[in-house]
Design a protein around this nucleic acid. Structure first.
Length: 695
DNA sequence: GGGAATGCGTTTTTT
DNA sequence: ACGCATTCCC
């Protein structure tokens, strides 16, 4: 516990507060860490950059660092651990607690976005906005941009104009990279260069609208935190003094804003430890830049740099392939991973006739692996895009192999969850335009036009829900439904109504609307149990909603209540697999245009990011690795195309010596067959004929 | 006028 | 499957 003596001791200056090192703990560190890890963990004060290759014990180093600092008498609350997901930070603190004691749980931490959310609510008045802001997730942002887009009337004049979701991506990239729209358009969509003026105008409208409605999108969280720290000296000093040590994980995937924020937070004590791997930078599309790593010493002169190169995860043959992928890269801090685990199978490149053959091979190999004693939890199937696993999902279902899917459509993005959240948001922030817009369209007879008009009207009247029952509106055919909405919001908005009760009231009112809107309402209703469980953990509806937007629960469709099984295979996008590892890994669709995605072809920077993405995928595997290559791949809609082998593999010198090639014919033995089996059979053609004549 | 139905074209990755 | 424009109907 944090007794008064404890606190007093911790707050004394470092020279006097550092207790003598505990010899037992010291000995544990020596045994548990290699030379480089030990140096990073026990480093003195001052800026420090740790370059940690895949599987080199980066998490291990960070958790030991936290434990070491706490053991040396640093107050846990004055350590700030910024991570990529909240799960990562919780896991690290759990492990640090295991190393030392409960004090480690009190370390401050989370994602940049959740940290920003916390700080901004605390200091909102200094930035001149209301602390009860709500957060727009991507869908909300797209809706709001859609509204200003149609209001402004740039679209629909015979000429192609960027869609709302394209605009949201563009705006986000503009904020995160701080690059002018002209440059971004030139790079990514030169066909819209004519519309530069219109785009800039829409960006301004969107910003103003957010301000009026007291809502922040993801980028605003970072932007406003940066500005708070930059322009409010006393706040910066207060925070930078409070955090004696700042630790930043996955530094290669931070953008300019995040690097700036980190630097400002460390501006007083200059104790920043950034950990990352330039070879694993895969969020360039979100503005992340390896420059943050490369220029670290420019921001913090005299920074110490430690490289972790010994890999403890994978066998040498898997690392050889990973190194091969990296060697074909255009640039990067040279590094070559090595492992003690020499034994191991060489990765397999499996050629199948088509998508279905690919799914069949993967499913059957999973069953074999389970027979051999590999638990399902140690098996993962990775893909470049979420929809690449569609065929496999069917196959796994048919064979009763339990799986969970990560990446792609998430629980909170399902339409009915968004509806409920919109209603809840209105109980917290009656200015939230996107929430009004969505909620109002639930009512029969209200479409986009009417919803917009009523939204504007309510916001003009300071969010007073009683305007919904003005005679002018109640006389319309949707008048009765408007009154029920107004009733609901008045009842549920009272501060005295707890989170669970509020959700219950919202769900009751939502029920009839849901039945009208969805054919499968009953199925969707199951998800509300999961939502209620999560809501029960919160005391304030604002924090519940903020977490749903910033740290969404990471179970896929169906939710945790579906999980009778405690053993399942992981299906994941490569992005969502970051930082994780499995005994056996399959990578799907190693075809040109799939992995790498066709959008990246011809754009060097994007193509290089695809290469790093493959590097991340390959280095997730501990022991078995299968690269799947269907000869023909199905388009979203039934047509087939012959797929060339992924150029990412083609780029690798000596690929033949790094992988063993296997041709799989559906229905035959898996790996016993040899490569003399003809590469083509007629099953794909037969399937096409079947499909064509089916109608 | 505007909501609902229809049809066409596009679809990577995520806090 | 979804966004957006167009057409159809109250």
């Amino acid at each position: 516990m944090d007794g008064p003596e404890n606190r007093a001791a911790a707050e004394r200056p470092s020279e006097t507060s550092t207790p003598p090192p505990d010899p037992l703990f010291e000995q544990h560190l020596r045994e548990a860490l290699n030379e480089a890890q030990y140096r990073a963990v026990t480093a003195d004060e001052g800026p420090h950059l740790v370059i940690a290759g895949a599987g080199t014990g980066k998490t291990r180093a960070l958790t030991h660092r936290v434990a070491w600092l706490v053991q040396r008498g640093i107050r846990p609350e004055s350590i700030l651990l910024l991570t990529f997901t909240r799960r990562a930070s919780q896991e690290m603190l759990r492990r640090a607690t295991g190393l030392l004691d409960e004090r480690c749980r009190r370390v401050s931490g989370g994602t940049f976005h959740s940290f920003a959310n916390l700080i901004l609510r605390r200091y909102a008045e200094r930035l001149d906005f209301h602390p009860r802001f709500t957060i727009l997730d991507r869908t909300d942002a797209v809706d709001l941009v859609g509204i200003v887009r149609s209001e402004a009337g740039y679209a629909g004049q015979g000429k192609r104009f960027p869609r709302s979701d394209t605009l949201v991506d563009l705006f986000s990239k503009h904020v995160n990279t701080q690059a002018p729209f002209t440059d971004l358009l030139e790079q990514d969509m030169p066909q819209f260069l004519d519309d530069l003026g219109a785009i800039e105008d829409l960006f301004g409208r969107y910003r103003r609208r957010k301000q009026e409605q007291n809502v922040l999108d993801y980028d605003d969280l970072l932007l406003l935190l940066r500005d708070l720290l930059r322009h409010h000296t006393e706040v910066r000093q207060e925070l930078a003094a409070r955090y004696r040590h700042v630790l930043v994980d996955e530094f290669q995937d931070t953008n300019r804003l995040q690097a700036h924020i980190s630097a400002l937070l460390a501006s007083v004590h200059r104790n920043i430890m950034a950990v990352g791997d330039d070879a694993q930078s895969i969020y360039g599309f979100r503005g992340a830049t390896v420059r943050n790593i490369l220029d670290f010493s420019k921001i913090f002169p005299g920074a110490e740099i430690t490289k972790l190169e010994q890999n403890y995860r994978s066998t040498q043959p898997i690392l050889d392939l990973g190194n091969g992928v990296l060697r074909s890269a255009k640039e990067g801090i040279g590094k070559e991973l090595f492992s003690d685990l020499d034994e191991g199978e060489i990765p397999t490149l499996v050629r199948t006739p088509d998508d279905h053959g690919q799914a069949e091979f993967v499913a059957r190999r999973i069953l074999e692996l389970r027979e051999e004693g590999v638990p399902l939890s140690e098996i993962a199937v990775l893909a470049r895009a979420a929809w690449h696993t569609a065929e496999l999902e069917l196959e796994l279902q048919q064979r009763n192999i339990p799986f969970r899917k990560f990446g792609g459509i998430r629980f909170v993005e399902a339409a009915h969850i968004k509806d409920v959240c919109a209603l809840l948001k209105l109980t917290a922030n009656p200015f939230d335009g996107p929430a009004w817009f969505r909620a109002l369209q639930l009512l029969e007879g209200i479409g986009p036009k009417t919803a917009r008009a009523i939204t504007d009207h309510v916001i003009e009247r300071d969010g007073d829900v009683r305007v919904l029952v003005q005679p002018k509106l109640t006389s319309r055919r949707y008048g009765n439904e408007l009154s029920s909405l107004s009733d609901l919001l008045q009842r549920a908005s009272a501060d005295s109504v707890g989170v669970s009760a509020r959700l219950e009231q919202v769900l009751d009112a939502y029920s009839p609307w849901m039945e009208r809107k969805y054919d499968d309402a009953n199925q969707r209703r199951n998800d509300f149990d999961s939502l209620a469980v999560i809501a029960g953990r919160y005391a304030e509806v604002e924090s519940f909603l903020a977490d749903l937007a910033i740290d969404p629960p990471d179970f896929g469709r169906g939710g945790p209540s579906d999980d009778q099984e405690d053993e399942w295979v992981t299906l994941s996008t490569v992005h969502s697999a970051k930082g994780l590892e499995w005994h056996a890994v399959f990578i799907l669709q190693m075809n040109a245009g799939r992995f790498p995605s066709f959008q990246s072809l011809g754009k060097e920077a994007d193509y290089e990011e695809e290469r790093r993405l493959l590097y991340v995928a390959v280095t997730r595997a501990k022991r078995y690795l299968y690269l799947m290559k269907p000869e023909e791949v199905g388009n979203r809609y039934r047509s087939y195309e012959v797929g060339e082998l992924s150029p990412l593999l083609g780029d690798i010198r000596d690929l033949r010596s790094l992988v063993s090639e296997h041709v799989h014919v559906p229905g035959q033995e898996l790996l016993q067959g040899d490569a003399t089996v003809p590469a083509h059979d007629d099953s794909a053609q037969l399937q096409r004929i079947e499909d064509y004549f089916a109608d």
